[in-house]
């Protein structure tokens, strides 16, 4: 017998983290996580197992993130170039990670979500394709493009850094 509280305890971090990385706004991420779990509660009678519930969350949460990103597009932050120009050169790994996170948040909604599912949850392209109901090749191409874009921008950003500090 599936218990909602158990599913909430087990998967809230997964959903919250996905939303947090995708939206870059902890308050909005909390709201989105709450909405996703309230929707999960309405589907409890149709869920057969814990694995089914996790799959449901992994299917619904990224879609909600994509919808929310699109809704918030008009309130988007500064362009990527501005982030790169305004930020101080990364002094340590923490700053570097924050810059990568900011760059990820400037990616298009679907590419951003695919990248987070791949690198946060370690999902294979085939699993992501199944969750988002798109061809595997599309996922691979989005990943390839997103990683290439981020890598290029970060490499340019770090070009002036001393040797050994490059990512």
């Amino acid at each position: 017998m599936l218990r909602f509280v158990d599913l909430l305890r087990e998967h809230q971090a997964m959903v919250y983290s996905l939303a947090c990385h995708a939206l870059g706004d902890p308050v909005a991420a909390e709201d989105l996580t709450q909405d996703v779990f309230l929707a999960l509660h309405e589907h409890m009678d149709r869920l057969e197992s814990a694995a089914h519930a996790k799959a449901w969350l992994l299917r619904v949460a990224p879609r909600r993130c994509i919808d929310e990103i699109r809704k918030r597009r008009h309130r988007a932050g500064p362009p990527l170039e501005a982030i790169e120009a305004a930020s101080a050169p990364p002094q340590d790994e923490l700053v570097l990670r924050e810059q990568v996170q900011a760059m990820v948040r400037r990616l298009p909604a679907r590419a951003r979500t695919v990248l987070i599912l791949r690198y946060q949850d370690g999902l294979a392209p085939a699993e992501i394709a199944s969750l988002l109901e798109v061809p595997v090749e599309t996922v691979k191409s989005r990943l390839h493009r997103a990683v290439g874009l981020l890598r290029g921008r970060l490499t340019r950003r770090l070009a002036g850094e001393p040797a050994g500090r490059k990512a």
Partner: peptide
Amino acid sequence: DRFEKLLSESLRRIQPPPNLEGRILRSL
């Protein structure tokens, strides 16, 4: 590989605030 490692570290799981579970249950 280094860049992928950096991506994985940058996008590692963020722990939710401790009151999120209570907030969701109250809302429910």
